[in-house]
Design a protein around this nucleic acid. Structure first.
Lengths: 197, 197
DNA sequence: TATATATTGGAAGGGTCGTTACAGAAACAG
DNA sequence: CTGTTTCTGTAACGACCCTTCCAATATATA
């Protein structure tokens, strides 16, 4: 009956996601999105309805393919002593080496949080969810570290490490060295707590 | 010879500063700046040359009248035990109560950090300077707290409190509850460290 | 092959942006 | 009061934004 879609929607969304990530919402103009995706205006508006529609698809893709996969290994596995250090090192690696979540990119949602089209509530909820997951995993990791410690001491340490990790996400784009320092501080807290018993 | 300027330059810059702070660089359009300052396009361009020129003046005003005054009381005074808690409480008060640096505003430099006209280096340097000042003051405060503690333990605690405070600045606009939590965590670390000896 | 449907390219729409040009108004010095 | 200099208001400029329209193209079914 009709011809089939020639482009792969996921590929297009990923290309747009990459541009939004790098340039922000307002910085990613339609001409720039055309070039990034290889699609013409017509196809973009036919497929996604509006720039906002494409952005929403990019955010969904970001959550599905970047955020959730990064959280999944934390779900149950970070309980072994030493795993927390490995996780923090991995975070630092992701922030300092060139790549999607490098210093030049940071976090897509945080980069675009100030755009008028982005709902503050959504950003806050995602950050909050991420924090909860991170906190739970770090809590388990800390408990494995400090078996014999008082539980309130465990909780304080887990809170601090979580807060410093979240700080790294917020800071990595605007002040990369501060982000690295936050992670290093979290690492120091953990190692010192372990050595002291 | 010639007529004198009718408006007070400082007042105008403060009004512009407030708008840039709230709306970001691109969000503060020339018409909006006209309304905020009470000046017409002509006067704005006569006085500041361009939007960028007015923005630069606003940033200078921000550094002179907001950032530096906030750092000055930290210079030497935060040495008494308990002063750090007072300082953190003051920070939290500033973030949660309505006012210039409330959750709706955050930090001007961080809000505008992603605008193309803002030099990344400048932002990083200001954040770094702010951090250094904060770190020194918190270090003194922590030392007053933990007189008898090992110096590396003092430094770890000071680093953590500093990192969590900086995080609050970065997070207050996009995730206010996370900012408050960061400060609360810093406070918990301090009080627990004090109680434990 | 013929037809129907979906995709595509090009052009133009209305709107806002930052900036500039220019004439009229206002205030100081003589 | 007069002349000169500065400031101010209005209008318009070109550029870019997101979006829409419409004709032409390409494909899959009948």
């Amino acid at each position: 009956m009709a011809r089939t879609q020639e482009f792969d929607r996921d590929v297009v969304v990923r290309a747009a996601r990459s541009l939004f990530w790098r340039a922000g919402f307002e910085g990613a103009s339609i001409p720039a999105l055309e070039e990034a995706t290889g699609l013409s205006r017509s196809s973009i508006y036919n497929t996604f309805g509006s720039k906002r529609g494409l952005f929403d698809a990019a955010v969904q893709s970001y959550l599905d393919e970047v955020i959730r996969p990064r959280l999944r290994p934390l779900k149950d596995e970070v309980v072994a002593p030493g795993a927390m250090l490995t996780y923090l090192d991995g975070l630092q690696e992701a922030f300092t080496s060139p790549g999607s979540m490098s210093a030049a990119n940071g976090c897509l949602l945080i980069n675009t949080a100030t755009a008028p089209v982005v709902r503050d509530d959504d950003v806050a909820r995602v950050v909050s969810d991420y924090r909860a997951e991170l906190r739970a995993a770090i809590g388990r990791g800390v408990a494995a570290y400090l078996d014999a410690a008082a539980s309130d001491e465990q909780e304080r340490l887990a809170d601090a490490v979580t807060g410093l990790s979240i700080a790294a996400f917020a800071l990595v784009r605007i002040a990369p060295s501060e982000a690295v320092r936050s992670l290093a501080t979290a690492r120091d807290l953990l190692t010192a707590a372990r050595l002291s018993r």
